[in-house]
Amino acid sequence: MDVKYINPFLEGTIEVLKTMAFVNPRPGKPYLKQNNLAKGDVSGIIGITGTIKGSLALSFSTGSILKIVSNMLGEEITSLNGEIRDAVGEITNMVSGAARKKIEAMGYSLSASLPTVVSGEDHSIMHVLGGSNIVIPFEMDEGPFVVDISMGDPQ
């Protein structure tokens, strides 16, 4: 996977969470991941099609997503309820939109599917393409989350 796709997703994630949830997640060093195991307790995944095919997943620890959604809703959420699942889907959708806009500025045409949300211990994230994918880790005071990307070559 071409590393030039990392920054649009990194910047898109920060932009969405800063704007909608007033948090400033700290990005760590991206790394390659070989398995399907999710890093967090609740994950949103969305397929990307167009001149580049791939998928994006955001996988949140309980602490990080409770803080994010509490800020988005303006009320304290204390458990992984339906509102959290809805919000994870919406955040995934928005990050995908923000990142695609940046990748489209490189001259590609992209669209996205509807997001799917998965939760539970040791759940898996199945990327459209399989193989290895790049993970961008983020830290918040309340816990970590990751952005897990799999993008193919332009067609």
Binding site: M20, M72, L73, G74, G82, E83, D86, A87, E90
Partner: peptide, 11 residues
Amino acid sequence: DFATMRKVIRN
């Protein structure tokens, strides 16, 4: 259609 997004916009 997402109740959570309605709540976000309301907020």
